[in-house]
Amino acid sequence: MRVKSETILPYSLLVPTLIFVILLIVVPIGQAFLLAFQAPDSSFTFAHFQKMANDTSFGDALRFTFLLLIFIVPMQVVLAIIMALLIHTRFKGHTLFLYIYAIPLAISDLAAGIAWLSIFTERGYLNSILNQLGIFDKPFLFLSYQNLPAMFGTIVVAESWRATAIVMTILLAGLQVIPRDYFEAADVFGATTLKRTLFVVLPLLRPSLQNALIIRTIFAFQTFAVVFALAGRVIPVLAGESYNWYVANRNPNIAAAYAVLVLIFTVAATWFYLHFFQTSAAEAGYD
């Protein structure tokens, strides 16, 4: 009797979760595919995808989503590595700085977009400071369709500012797992700080870096509120198009088609990173 209840216990603890996950994750994903691939008469169709691809914003949305990814992710990683390595030296007061660097963790992309809007807008703080420094006497229009690269840049800055914190915490958590001996061994062999960082720390950080890249890439495909806040619909992105097709055009099929596309990119990117990095268990021996 007892033996039996012991074997069942872990499963019974997980059952509510599994039911919930099936009802609210697995089934909806199936439905999303149905919405995206089903014609009104329930037959299989590519019509929704065709309509999506023929939409004028589609090409731009695709391009801008990938451009954002290409600009934002490296910027975040570099900034985050610097922050994490700084904190990891455990200088006096590092906990305060960790707290400061981590603040954007809890800030939504919408709020981050608005915060940067107050800076980049026509009569915002950036133009104010540029004016006071005597660089411009008239405000520069960062957020105008006439200055698309500048507008795009503001999104890169805002999103990098927000999500660097996530990458930093992942890297810092990874750094803490690395035994201090590794650093000390490098010291004994007379490595300079730069060499140590490049040849000892970064290779050991590879698993965390991989994790950070996966999670950031996944979220970069979903970027949308920060774009809305800064650029409205001038710069379309995939997730934003999905939102618009549902909310403004009341077309769940095309909205679902966009969602499926985002999912496909997400899976592909994850696969790419896992394949590209290929951290073997042996290599991450301390793990």
Binding site: Q222, A239, S242
Partner: peptide, 15 residues
């Protein structure tokens, strides 16, 4: 399941 975009859950669920 942490990978799934919000959109792919919310749109069918809205329906």
């Amino acid at each position: 399941s942490k990978m799934f975009p919000t959109a792919i859950l919310s749109i069918p669920l809205a329906v």
